[in-house]
Design a binder for these strands. Structure first.
Lengths: 348, 348
DNA sequence: TTGTACGCGTTATCAA
DNA sequence: TTGATAACGCGTACAA
């Protein structure tokens, strides 16, 4: 009993009547598997059949069913990406790099927002894993033990991004936030500032390491003072930057510079200086972290530590694609480094 | 030949040995379909069996295979979202609303970046559709005819976001960019500014409508002048804002206010005023569009037209979920409106 | 280079 | 309330 009468689809199908590979095959007078190959590995099908098949594909408007494909191959054409925030410009840039690194690839990206929560990360990992993704990209190196176990058992490539550290689950690309914090602070000290404050919002593990770098630099110079550090668990924003800078001034009225957790915070500190009539950089020096686009055009322009977020996304995907193709990347752990961009806000 | 020896999984499986619903079923002494129901519609299974099944699920660590589920039910637990940009804060907020509106739902979000290109949108639509998504959310109302056709044939709910207009494909939530542009411009005129410039980057269809609103307001007041309009196809950014403001000044040296395409542009214009020593708001008035967080804390604080982006994402998802559940939302077309937030930058 | 037979893990259908 | 059976549409393994 032929389930399909050539050309006339049996509309009783559950799927709603979309043409299937069998429809294409019968109409093109070939086997289904040949159609499958013509679409996925054209070079393995003779040019004649290939053309024939493609013509029918166009005519019928056939589009392969990704779900069936995923089931049959035990692999979804999806790359799962876990980030702690979507509004943070930093992750927006990374995500953009990921999408653009994928380019014409047939893979899709699925983004999960962990909201800086390890539990949420575990749950998302479970969900993502239940799709058998082609690869997984996760942020940071502070996964919970359970999450780490899930990642290690995941039979797909895993890339940790945003930061480097010991014990990569699989592959890793990022930079040292500790060294970044240290370099920025050293610069402020070398520029002649002495009472350099640290201002940090949403102290996630990476910010904590920036703070550790700040502390190291200050201690090396014999300048460290607890009262110069002001942090909050609130999310970072320009407004939070202004507020925290005010707090910092209250705690340490003599401060002469601020190393900010990130650029939004730095911009907030700058606005607060304007508002209070404190001159930047002569009275107060300001440095940010990440070097968002606005830093260069702010007035005065703002010193920041440039990080390669877009590049990180692109290379993370490139590494994942390599691994998916079965090739082990030459360097499974990549340190992208950073660059201090000195601008008006710290030049006295 | 029993494929599964109770408790001892046949490791020859392609899937890599993950427990399947059959494993759970045999161990719990029930049929596979009962396990399936216990997971999806617990109330349809007797409490006794339900407990029994859940115990085995936990014991085995069974997680349903989403791909198999998608194939069998002809529906992937995925909502496709098409946005023109990922770096633009505006879309970041909408996307955040979408994720948070989904909350504990089992659905996943898949985001496609159209890069403001109709062709890219068509391709992404094809890709998304090949998964049989549970719903589709697309940005704007300017889809190509082909894309519109795809959306109309898609057998899933479709929500158009970001703007309202005639002829919704299915559902729609947004606001009128034309009225927004008109309202902001009127405010500047009422505040006493006469030579109000329009500064716009990346003139996508929505920005064009903001410009149309600007023009209408200016013409109503008898103040319209071509030379007051400066636009570019370049993407918007703080830097572009500074540059375009400079261009605008070159073309119309006597301009006394700028209505900017969006808030990044407004901030750029503000910095340029600082740099040139032009007082805001006394010499130059500045207004933005969207009311990003930084506008309230900038110095001087910046007037902007507040739009409800997060809310838009949340409600778009709510509408989609309603439709997925088979209920037609009471209002398939929602105008969220906007609110002009007047601040220092336009108070002379 | 092409095709056959089968399995992937789940849900829809229908009957008990 | 529960279950047997048959899809779902494709890719893998192997053979021709």
């Amino acid at each position: 009993m032929p389930p399909v009468t050539a050309g006339v689809k049996a509309r009783s199908r559950r799927g709603g009547g979309r043409p299937t590979i069998a429809d294409v095959a019968s109409k093109a007078g070939v086997g289904a598997i040949t159609v499958s190959r013509a679409l996925r590995e054209p070079e393995r099908v003779s040019p004649r059949l290939r053309r024939q098949i493609m013509a029918v594909v166009d005519e019928l408007g056939y589009v392969p069913d990704r779900n069936a494909r995923a089931l049959a191959s035990a692999r979804a054409d999806v790359i799962g990406v876990l980030v702690p925030s979507l509004t943070n410009n930093v992750f927006a840039d990374v995500v953009r790099g990921i999408y653009e690194g994928l380019d014409q690839n047939h893979l899709q990206v699925q983004i999960g927002n962990t909201h800086y929560s390890q539990e949420a990360e575990e749950e998302l990992l479970q969900t993502f894993l239940s799709q058998r993704p082609s690869a997984l990209i996760v942020s940071g190196i502070d996964q919970s033990p359970a999450a780490t176990a899930l990642l290690e058992r995941a039979d797909c490539p895993v890339v940790q991004i945003m930061e480097t550290g010991p014990d990569p689950v699989d592959m890793m690309i990022g930079f040292s936030h500790y060294e970044g914090g240290r370099a920025a602070t050293r610069h402020l000290i070398e520029a002649g500032y002495r009472r350099v404050a640290f201002i940090g919002a949403r102290m996630d593990p990476r910010s904590e390491r920036r703070l550790a770098g700040y502390r190291a630099a200050m201690e090396e110079a014999g300048l460290f003072d607890e009262r110069l550090v002001t942090t909050t668990v609130r999310p970072s924003s320009v407004t939070t930057g202004s507020e925290l800078f005010r707090e910092a001034l209250a705690k340490a009225p003599a401060l002469d510079a601020a190393f900010c957790n990130n650029d939004d915070m730095a911009l907030g500190a700058l606005f607060e200086c304007h508002r209070q009539g404190r001159a930047v950089p002569s009275e107060i020096g300001i440095a940010g972290f990440n070097d968002l686009e606005m830093m260069q055009i702010a007035y005065p322009s703002l010193t920041s530590l440039r990080t390669y977020r877009y590049e990180m996304g692109r290379r993370a995907i490139a590494m994942a694609l390599e691994a998916i193709a079965g090739r082990r990347p030459a360097e499974p752990v990549v340190d992208l480094g950073f660059e201090l961009i000195v601008r008006e806000s710290t030049r006295r």
